[in-house]
Amino acid sequence: MDLSGLQVILWLVAGLVSFYFSIGNARVWTSISVGFFLILFGELLPKAMPFLPGTGIPQVEAMGLIISTIAILVMSHGFQEYYVFSRTLELEGNKSQVYLVTLAVIFASQIFILINPAPDADTLRTIRVVGNANWVFLSLINIDLIRKIYLNVKGSPIGKGFLAFIAVFVCIFLWKGSELYIQVYRLDLPAVMEAYPARYQISQITNLIGNLLASLSVGGTFLYLARLLR
């Protein structure tokens, strides 16, 4: 069942909601919402819309994977900042700094891709594995960090919003974790797939459901936060 079109629509909604949220709210939310917004650019558009200009060019695909990794790094940084705020009640920086630094990192990654040989299938696979490993481990770390934030802001209007973020990262963990599992054990090779069909099927279904739930929960969480912070 090909649900990539539906995935794109859901991520498009989640991405737009999170980006809109970053404009209208306090600075510390900018990194978090920009991170979620970048998932849309980094992964889903190239994967789901093969007719987009540039799709199929290895550099473009590599860039998409790198932006996806930048996405989880940026949002993790945002949650770290929020945790520091919830502990020290101190705030630093400004919104434009977050946008500019994120753009600068993307630009530097682009230069890195361009000055190196065109990535072949193996290189792309390695970049994908590295990206997924980042997603999986940072999702786990973020779940713990958000739990601590929740304990610090429990009782405030925003408190329950962080429980929703825990649900988001659980979905992301399932989505990226199942993909990483397939990649590490090469379950997508025909011979391995035949030898372990159940594992491959379960991983694929987990990947699909995790992806759909992640996009739904991201969009839903930001709409919920917007309501809480109205």
Binding site: A26, P157, I158, L229, R230
Partner: peptide
């Protein structure tokens, strides 16, 4: 300014 990180403008 700080309170807006945990609550909405109205609140």
């Amino acid at each position: 300014k700080s309170a807006r990180l945990v609550a909405g403008h109205g609140k």
